[in-house]
Design a binder for these strands. Structure first.
Lengths: 125, 125
DNA sequence: CCGGTAATACGACCAAGGTAGTTGATGTCG
DNA sequence: CGACATCAACTACCTTGGTCGTATTACCGG
């Protein structure tokens, strides 16, 4: 269940469509992604993803309607944790520091984050 | 220069050794990584990495002494940005939120981060 | 000088992500 | 009914990361 779901670029893009739409056919996913790749690319990828266990499908007429079978928050958690491990030796705070100081967050956002931290500190305190 | 340096697991592990040691021979890297893989695996990887432009070497007798040719902060920046793009539609704050609420940061760290945000807010005016 | 050791060079493989063409079945529309 | 469009299945490639085995070369100790 909570296996390391380490998804590639296209796979993630597809997952995002499924997460936001709930369900989608190959054609819908394709369109949503800008229709720059071939339709079969999406279809092949979805097949591989189903084999891997990250999506499932039901049939509607002769079309397949796909649905994500893992939750977005779980994927975020495992992938962020993995990156944190690889780049910051597992130090989550180091990553947050990096984000705050190196990755362009405007003042309004900073204020929002400050409040978030306050709230979280309340919860943990 | 600022190409998307998208490094794999082993590559990152090797880079970390080089960043922290400044320079290292194949044998040193191998040892530092626990010597669980074959020595040639490290050697091959370093060759590939040099071709890719992320490390360079000089010769010392018969040995190659490798050195990183890209900075750690740059790799962090591009890889974090890439993940942010893929998982949070480029919304850095969303990632920070995720880290604060979902990834186990203790109260002391939260306080440290709060101060960091204050300071950054000062810098950005 | 000779045999073993230590290093790189080179080539082989495998898996996974990504991309797409072709085929064959099945519907639909005129 | 028949031509055309749609859709999944299958096959095929290519690239990159990762993992090694073997060959070749150079050095070092006896």
């Amino acid at each position: 269940m909570s296996r390391q779901h380490h998804l590639g670029e296209l796979q993630l893009a597809i997952m995002r469509v499924l997460w936001s739409h709930g369900e989608a056919t190959v054609a819908q996913v394709h369109k949503e992604l800008g229709a720059d790749r071939a339709l079969t690319t999406i279809a092949t990828m979805l097949t591989k993803m189903e084999k891997k266990g990250v999506v499932v499908h039901r049939e509607e007429g002769r079309q397949f309607v796909y649905r994500a079978s893992i939750r977005e928050a779980d994927v975020q958690r495992t992938m962020v944790a993995s990156l944190t491990e690889r780049l910051f030796e597992g130090d989550v705070s180091a990553l947050v520091s990096h984000l705050i100081t190196e990755q362009e967050i405007d003042v309004t956002e900073l204020e929002r984050l400050r409040e978030l931290i306050e709230r979280q500190r309340g919860l943990e305190g």
